[in-house]
Amino acid sequence: MDTPHEPHFIRPCTRIWLVLMALTCSTFAIGETGWSGTAVMLTVLGTAVIKVEMVANYFMGLRRTRWLWRGIVLGWLILVSGLITIAYLMTVK
């Protein structure tokens, strides 16, 4: 039977939530500066990748499941962000 204490995952998730909010603000700030270039693009996309992993592992609770499920999401993420990166690098000659 469950204990009446709050589940152990709340505190990490609260921290994750705050980090996600902060990272969103940083992405927005970069957008406002109008910077462009490979480094900026990689930073912004990298931030998104980290945020997705945080949502998948903490909010969706995949870190407490078999690697198969985390692997599907991670594989999808690497594939999609990898192809996006390739498409962007194609234009930087």
Binding site: T47, V52, V55, A56, F59
Partner: peptide
Amino acid sequence: ETGASYWHMVDLLWIILFPLVYVIR
């Protein structure tokens, strides 16, 4: 948990969509 999982996915997709379409240039 089923509903929460779906809702997290909606969030997750927007987390990529926002930088991709609005920010990255």
